[in-house]
Simulated scan of single mutants.
Amino acid sequence: MKLCDLTQFYSPLSGGVKRYVHEKIAYIQSETEHQHVLVVPGPKTECVTSERSRIYFIHSPLISRTSHYRALVNLRAIEQILEREKPDLIESGDPYQVAWKAIASGEALRIPVVGFYHSHFPEAYVRSAAKLLGQTAGEAMMDFTHRYVRNLYNSFQATLVPSAHLGSLLTDWGVGNVRTVNLGVNTTVFSPSPDDTAATRAELELPASRRLLLYVGRLAKEKNTRLLFRSFATLTENAPEDFHLLVIGDGPERSALEDLRARCPNVTWMRYCTDSSDLARYYRAADLFVHPGTQETFGLVALESQACGTPVVGIRGSYMDRIILHDQESWADEETPESLARTIEAACSRNLPRLGARASRLAEERLSWPRVFERLFVIYQDVSLNYKR
């Protein structure tokens, strides 16, 4: 099989979707005889070849100087690549113009196309805008968005979702082809060993008594990072010497982080960490990973943290629940800074190493990438066999 992934959710500074497609490439090259083609935006048009994999970068305008995301607007270039490569199956990781081009090219070339619902954009982006329009206009905007999702994803041969809960929601909206797939984690890189916690904490100049909280991801509204920063400010008001926050990531809410750092000296910021082995060190060194988002659908960072033996805390009722491998006894009941701050304090009173060890063991047993991709390729084969050419 020759598989083609199309997405514009791709940044050189990493990100969940980028890690997903590159782990898939690694699996294909090491465990199968399949071929892989990846089409993504880039600073210039070029093709990078490695064994049975080709990555096509299409010159695209920059839309974020902090995260380096680009808008893939040259749809003709996508069409030409697909005509030349003639893959057996196309996976679109995009809910916008790239998705419609994938569907149109698939129909023209008689190639099945599946869509991966990576981003729950109606809640992450549209609902907050709809609130500004008043109840009637806001409800009309959300209704339009639901119809857009239904029309787009019913045009695929299958819609892949990383959560049964999210799949049920899409089914309620009228999407009739939902297939649930698990997320995975590279348990070779993200693991509790080696025991380098002391060295990493020394690098961060942390006293032994201070709890290290970690956040990894974009600094953006949809990630709820302002809530995290306000929560940490509340923590340090109550106990200024007890906690340290390490933030790895950049984005449009950088100014909010800078304000926090101006008020709280016990905050460390790293703009990005592109080396997975280095990132694993920071996961292992942390006492607790804080995930403030409520609309997250992918959540690879939460899996990576647990695989390294570091428990996760967040807000109850999100789509993250299905990938938390330890109990959520200490999770926040309310989406407020005060509730999240209380939650962090409560979690730190528990036996965090024991929670983390259990989560790491389950990640290894259930969610290593080879296990996940074995199941995903069964779906690919089923879609291909049932496609009417």
Results as ranks from 00 to 15, higher is better:
residue 221 K to T: 00
residue 185 V to I: 10
residue 174 G to E: 08
residue 234 T to P: 06
residue 180 T to G: 03
residue 214 L to W: 08
residue 228 L to G: 01
residue 188 T to S: 15
residue 236 T to V: 14
residue 191 S to E: 07
residue 221 K to P: 10
residue 209 S to D: 13
residue 171 T to Y: 02
residue 201 R to D: 06
residue 190 F to N: 02
residue 192 P to D: 05
residue 197 T to Y: 06
residue 231 S to M: 09
residue 195 D to R: 12
residue 236 T to C: 10
residue 188 T to M: 13
residue 211 R to S: 12
residue 175 V to C: 06
residue 190 F to Y: 03
residue 186 N to R: 04
residue 207 P to A: 12
residue 215 Y to W: 10
residue 219 L to T: 08
residue 180 T to H: 04
residue 191 S to N: 05
residue 198 A to N: 12
residue 203 E to D: 08
residue 180 T to N: 00
residue 174 G to I: 07
residue 206 L to C: 03
residue 196 D to K: 13
residue 183 L to V: 15
residue 215 Y to E: 02
residue 183 L to C: 14
residue 220 A to F: 01
residue 181 V to W: 03
residue 207 P to I: 11
residue 212 L to F: 02
residue 175 V to S: 07
residue 199 A to F: 12
residue 180 T to K: 10
residue 218 R to I: 09
residue 224 N to I: 03
residue 186 N to C: 02
residue 212 L to V: 03
residue 236 T to Q: 14
residue 209 S to E: 13
residue 206 L to I: 08
residue 179 R to L: 07
residue 220 A to S: 09
residue 180 T to L: 06
residue 230 R to C: 14
residue 223 K to A: 04
residue 196 D to F: 12
residue 197 T to F: 05
residue 206 L to E: 04
residue 235 L to P: 01
residue 188 T to E: 15
residue 212 L to C: 03
residue 179 R to E: 01
residue 177 N to V: 13
residue 187 T to Y: 01
residue 190 F to G: 00
residue 226 R to D: 14
residue 218 R to H: 00
residue 181 V to K: 07
residue 176 G to C: 15
residue 174 G to T: 07
residue 201 R to G: 01
residue 180 T to W: 00
residue 199 A to Y: 03
residue 197 T to H: 07
residue 198 A to F: 12
residue 228 L to M: 10
residue 171 T to L: 12
residue 207 P to H: 13
residue 190 F to M: 11
residue 216 V to K: 08
residue 207 P to G: 10
residue 197 T to M: 02
residue 213 L to C: 14
residue 173 W to N: 12
residue 172 D to Y: 03
residue 197 T to N: 07
residue 193 S to A: 15
residue 171 T to F: 09
residue 207 P to F: 05
residue 216 V to A: 03
residue 207 P to M: 11
residue 236 T to N: 11
residue 174 G to Y: 08
residue 203 E to G: 00
residue 233 A to K: 07
residue 201 R to W: 04
residue 230 R to L: 14
residue 205 E to R: 15
residue 211 R to V: 10
residue 223 K to S: 06
residue 176 G to N: 11
residue 188 T to C: 15
residue 179 R to F: 10
residue 216 V to W: 00
residue 228 L to I: 08
residue 176 G to Y: 11
residue 201 R to Y: 05
residue 214 L to C: 07
residue 228 L to K: 10
residue 228 L to S: 07
residue 200 T to M: 09
residue 210 R to C: 09
residue 214 L to M: 01
residue 204 L to Y: 12
residue 227 L to A: 07
residue 230 R to N: 13
residue 226 R to H: 15
residue 211 R to P: 09
residue 206 L to H: 06
residue 218 R to C: 02
residue 196 D to T: 01
residue 229 F to S: 05
residue 227 L to M: 14
residue 211 R to K: 14
residue 171 T to Q: 13
residue 231 S to T: 00
residue 174 G to H: 00
residue 212 L to T: 04
residue 217 G to Y: 00
residue 233 A to T: 11
residue 225 T to I: 12
residue 193 S to P: 13
residue 230 R to W: 14
residue 213 L to A: 10
residue 200 T to R: 09
residue 200 T to K: 12
residue 202 A to W: 07
residue 194 P to N: 11
residue 212 L to S: 01
residue 221 K to A: 09
residue 196 D to W: 09
residue 205 E to K: 15
residue 182 N to P: 08
residue 176 G to I: 15
residue 220 A to P: 02
